[in-house]
């Protein structure tokens, strides 16, 4: 009976839609990967029960229905409607300034003294600023030597910031040694651009 098929299809679609809405006008969770501002690759892996979804495209999303999860593509409008308040409460991103040092010392280069001044302008933009001073070295010398030198440089900058009125409780100094060079080099290479301290304002 070929003529009854369209009718049955309509009924089936209606029943499906009704069930989907009864169960599904409510869904218990949503995950959306947002586009990166600088465009580099990112991903979130979502495990729901036995299923795993990898969200690795802008607006790739999953939502959790009572019967299981579903992958789909969200958009800026849905994200704003569902997460507008959460996103509006996002703190300002950390901003980083880099200061350079004379070889083997904890004293700034001349250019870096000027950059140091701009940090204070940035601090005034944050409602409750806290600062991290991160010391780095080049790859000349051992790890323990460079860890100490990096921390000494960071401490010197911390002291300078405190002298200019930043509350000590709001500044942490850390040393990264030679682990995180700005310019990758072989071990033992003297590289002025790696002898630096970052001031992170956040």
């Amino acid at each position: 009976m070929t003529t009854s098929w369209p009718l049955r299809a309509v009924v089936a679609a209606a029943v499906f839609a009704l069930t989907a809405c009864l169960g599904g006008c409510y869904h218990s969770g949503l995950v959306v990967l947002l586009p990166e501002k600088d465009g580099h690759a990112t991903a979130v892996e979502v495990k729901q029960g036995e299923q795993t979804y990898v969200l690795d495209k802008p607006y790739a999303a999953t939502r959790q229905w009572p019967m299981g999860a579903q992958a789909y593509t969200s958009d800026a409008k849905e994200v704003e409607a569902r997460f507008g308040a959460a996103m509006a409460a996002q703190p300002m991103r950390a901003k980083s300034f880099t200061l350079y040092f004379l070889e083997g010392q904890d004293e700034f280069t001349v250019e870096s003294k000027e950059i140091f001044e701009t940090v204070f302008v940035e601090i005034s933009r944050y409602p409750v600023p806290d600062l991290v001073v991160v010391g780095h070295t080049d790859k000349v010398g051992s790890d323990p030597f460079n860890d100490q030198l990096a921390l000494r440089r960071a401490e010197a900058v911390r002291t300078a910031l405190i002298a200019r009125g930043v509350a000590p409780v709001n500044i942490v100094a850390v040393g990264r040694g030679k682990r995180d060079p700005l310019v990758p080099t072989a071990d033992g290479v003297a590289e002025p651009r790696n002898r630096r301290v970052e001031i992170v304002v956040r």
Binding site: S28, L34, T42, V44, R82
Partner: peptide, 20 residues
């Protein structure tokens, strides 16, 4: 984590809701 999912974060920016 949410009551229904575990998210492994490779980076960087995302939103998640639970038990709305």
């Amino acid at each position: 984590r949410t009551p229904s999912s575990i998210l492994g974060i490779r980076g960087t920016e995302f939103v998640v809701s639970a038990n709305d």
